[in-house]
Amino acid sequence: MNAPGTLAIYIGAALAEIAGCFAVWAWMRQGASALWLVPGLLSLAVFAWLLTLAPSDFAGRAYAAYGGVYIAASLLWLWLIEKQRPDTWDLTGAAICLAGAAVILLAPRAAGG
């Protein structure tokens, strides 16, 4: 699979994970109804399924590369959903993580490595 396809998988997984975790957060921390757990658990199941589609021979490498995308998506969630603008430190940290994820994802590897 090419890098844009992999990125699309990771973005979808990040949205599903953040939405699922936010549902639990809303229930536990904001007093939302326990019914929030139903779509939250479904969203987390979609997240796990999407990560299995990542083109990597090793789960740990797929998860490591995904981590950078998750961090960036979390800051977008912070800004767009929670209405809290990320600060310079947030953005700098996310840029470093995305650079690391790109190295992991795009590095030339020997067959099976």
Results as ranks from 00 to 15, higher is better:
W36D: 00
A16Q: 06
L51H: 07
G12W: 06
S74F: 08
L51E: 04
A19I: 15
L50H: 04
F22I: 11
A73S: 12
S33R: 01
A32H: 06
W79N: 04
E82H: 14
V69E: 08
Y70C: 12
Y70W: 14
G40C: 04
G31V: 10
A14M: 11
F47W: 13
W49A: 12
C21Q: 07
I18D: 03
G67F: 13
F22G: 02
G20D: 02
L50K: 05
L41N: 11
P39I: 06
A26L: 13
C21K: 07
E17M: 01
Y63R: 06
A34S: 08
K83C: 12
C21M: 13
F22Y: 15
L80D: 03
A26D: 03
V24P: 00
L42I: 12
A26M: 09
L51R: 05
A72V: 13
L15V: 11
M28V: 15
L41M: 12
L15M: 09
L50A: 06
A59C: 06
W27E: 00
V24N: 00
A14S: 15
G68E: 02
G31H: 08
G67A: 13
G68H: 03
L50Q: 02
S74W: 11
V69P: 05
W79K: 05
Y66N: 05
I81G: 03
C21W: 08
I18C: 05
Y63M: 09
L42N: 11
K83Q: 14
W79I: 10
E82L: 14
A26S: 05
W77A: 01
I18E: 03
G40Q: 01
L41S: 08
V24G: 00
I18Y: 03
G40S: 04
A23C: 14
E17H: 03
K83V: 13
Y70P: 05
I81C: 07
S43Q: 04
V69L: 08
K83N: 15
P39Y: 01
G12Q: 05
L35F: 00
L35R: 00
I11N: 01
A23R: 02
